[in-house]
């Protein structure tokens, strides 16, 4: 049943978003939105000298799933290396959210992946890789877990 997604953990991450806010001198600043529902996220990442995530924050408005996802994602990625951000997969995020097996419909999976899309676009542009429209499309549409 898909309403099982709204269990305490998700609601807690939604109501009390971790790492909410912005970082003035962030190396990565990216804004992504889901035109379907008007959800909107800004993601900020600041690295230390060894290219580890020193700070990561997000802000924006969205549904419980997208906000909880962003909230949890920032928590997972704090302290991680740049390479870890590159290898971080949809599967990693969906598993952490515990929604892989819930049979959530593709529209709502897209909500969960909005922060992921922002992350990938931000990180790729940081290392000088520009994503084509097609690659961006794959980021939010293909809900199956796959290696990026």
């Amino acid at each position: 049943m898909s309403s099982e997604i709204y269990r305490d953990m998700i609601l807690d991450y939604y109501r009390h978003p971790r790492n909410y806010g912005s970082i003035e001198d962030a190396e990565i600043k990216v804004q992504e939105s889901n035109p379907l529902c008007g959800d909107d996220i800004e993601l900020y990442i600041k690295f230390d000298e060894e290219k580890n995530v020193k700070d990561i924050k997000f802000k924006g408005r969205g549904c419980a799933i997208s906000v909880a996802s962003a909230s949890l994602m920032t928590e997972l990625l704090k302290g991680k290396k740049l390479d870890d951000l590159l290898s971080f997969s949809k599967k990693d995020l969906l598993e952490a959210l515990g929604i892989e097996t819930l049979g959530l419909n593709p529209v709502r999976i897209k909500c969960a992946l909005l922060p992921y899309k922002a992350l990938k676009i931000g990180v790729y542009s940081h290392i000088g890789k520009k994503l084509s429209e097609e690659e961006k499309h794959i980021l939010d549409y293909e809900s199956e877990s796959q290696q990026d």
């Binding site: 529902c37 419980a64 799933i65």
Partner: peptide
């Protein structure tokens, strides 16, 4: 509650209801 979350909960009850900007941003 975000309308998308409402629509997901209602969907489970067999209720088809729209949530979004309704093409009127």
């Amino acid at each position: 509650i975000h309308p998308h979350d409402l629509a997901t909960i209602l969907d489970e009850e067999g209720i088809a209801l729209r949530a979004g900007h309704h093409c009127a941003m």
